[in-house]
Amino acid sequence: MVTINYAQREIHCKIVYYGPGLCGKTTNLKFIYDKTSPKVKGRMISLATEAERTLFFDFLPLSLGEIKGFRTRFHLYTVPGQVFYAASRKLILKNVDGVVFVADSQVQRMEANQESLDDLKRNLREENLDIDSIPMVIQYNKRDLPNAAPTAEMSSLLNPWRRPEFLATATTGYGVFDTLKEISKLVLQNIRKGAR
């Protein structure tokens, strides 16, 4: 849910990075955190297990600049990707304004990608949100690995809506900011579309 604060001249939006376990959601946020100036970012919070697997969520607040005199603030969240954290994923998806679906490009992870996408659809539906209309970007991560599936194949499997899609290697940062820029734009365009 977008919050518009006239008193403090701020717009707040929530973006959730979704995808199967170990697809690189947290790595996306870490790269953004490492490469943005301290003026733009807040503290990054990771609620993770001892083995650095996301337990509940990661959180990174970003302040991107002004639009119409309002400071735009994006709150980036990741969900825990492991299948058994279904209840937590549902909670984090509440009131989401934009989704980045991070797919793992490795051939043997295609089923996990598909399952995670189905899980996303189900959870959005329960929140009365429609995957056909919510701002969404698809990222095909881990393109540097030798067993990466062809992009066209991934696209036909995971992106029937023809949403904007990006190739990425989150460990090096390739594609990370392109993905973030696109989802931010889509969320802001959605605010414009819904203005009344």
Binding site: I4, I67, S184, A195
Partner: peptide, 20 residues
Amino acid sequence: MPGATAQFAEITDDDIDNLF
């Protein structure tokens, strides 16, 4: 209420691009 977010109808593509 109507008008609550009216001023955001005037956001231009340039406004958005300028953030990046």
